Simulated scan of single mutants.
Amino acid sequence: MRLWQKATGAIKDRKSIWTAKLMHNGPYQNPIFEAVVIKATSHDEHCIDCKNVQRVFQWLRTSPLHLKPLLFALSFRMEKTKNWVVAIKGLMLMHGVFCTNIAAVQKMGRLPFDFSNFSDGYLHPSKAWGFNSFVRAYFNYLDQRSAFVSSEFKRVSMKNNKKDGLEVEETLMEELKMLQNFQALIDSLLHIKPRNESMKQNALILEAMDCVIVEIFDVYSKFCKRMANVLMRIYDVGGREEAAVALKVLQKASSQGEDLSCYFKFCKVIGVLNASQCPKIERISDEDIEDLERIISSGDNMAIVLSDSCMEKELKTVITEQWEVFDDVDDYSSSWQNKNPFLDSSYDYSLVCQPPPPPQVLPDLISF
């Protein structure tokens, strides 16, 4: 049965390639691009054509003008398919395209195809529901991520243009809104997981989960860095309104950290390679949240300083009504800034995610 499915899939791919060659070239139609996309998103669930995946990323790095023909070829392929293998490979390819960080990709907006109601047309419904759920969740995240990146790119560009090209610092509320968007992205990522036993042993699913783990690592690291900076600004110039929003973000971060820990444990159990190298998620203590609540409710101006006595071991939150002058300390956030392997020039742009940096402990956000 498996041999028959593999042969049928190969015939379909070959037929699609021949059809692409016979199509007339339109403004964005390119038979060569379409053939490469078809090979990169083949029906074979046991193999990923990394050679043609590399060609896609190489074309994008060569010229952003190649983006529209590639998107046309990929969306045409995705809109026609009813096969979960082709759908997941297409989403992984789209994920890699996003991570090239090309300006044209950042301005793209929503995905050019829709998998929100994807349904496999070949598996029995009792087996297909898990794959359908996986494809829909993966699509939902990528679509949400693309829309978020596009809106931020346009907003920052418009703001800088109004200031004659000078970079403008974001307001606290803008930073807090971005933190909430990051948390929404993390929630979407946590929905991407295999939901039945057969999926947990599928090589392609585990490969996709590797990419998801790396993405979680990247998004959560950015969130923590921004959260630390926002808290320092709130302690410096923030008002009660900003502090109240920050408290909600911090409370959600506390529960989200527990969800991430459970998610990583689940991924380790099913054998996701990158999950074994993820950092430990530090729990935000109740005392830290209570300290922030007291700052919000206090009528006096209060400052947050770092106690010198605990600098050697760990940072600790101290509340005082008097400002203290102290020497500049190192930027501790630099120790846990991590890059998505898709973005590192030392990595190839392939569907197979490279291992993330060595495990590191994410710091306590309040004590930062």
Rank of each mutant, 00 (worst) to 15 (best):
T8E: 14
T171Q: 01
E287C: 04
M158V: 12
L189D: 02
V269R: 15
I295W: 09
H95A: 00
D164S: 11
L204R: 08
G165S: 05
D164A: 12
S119K: 12
V361Y: 02
R136K: 07
P279I: 10
S346W: 04
P358I: 04
K316L: 07
R145D: 05
P359S: 10
S367T: 11
N132T: 05
G239I: 14
K225G: 01
V230P: 01
P358S: 07
F115L: 07
K127T: 06
D328A: 15
A40W: 00
K225Q: 08
Q354K: 15
I304P: 03
Q360L: 12
E152K: 14
V149W: 00
I296E: 08
T62V: 11
S133R: 08
G109Q: 08
V249Y: 01
Q29P: 01
Y332D: 10
S151E: 12
N83Y: 02
Y263S: 13
L250C: 02
S346M: 07
C50L: 11
I11L: 12
L351D: 06
F98N: 04
H43S: 12
V85T: 15
M232E: 10
M199T: 04
Y122I: 04
G257W: 02
V269P: 02
L60D: 01
K89N: 04
P358M: 01
V105E: 00
F72P: 05
V318F: 07
M227A: 11
F33V: 15
F217P: 01
M199P: 03
A203E: 13
E241S: 12
L22C: 06
V135Y: 08
F264A: 12
V352I: 15
K159S: 13
I88H: 02
A7G: 10
L204S: 02
K154S: 01
L176C: 05
I88K: 03
P64I: 00
I88A: 06
R195H: 06
K163D: 13
R145G: 04
C99F: 05
N30I: 01
A104Y: 00
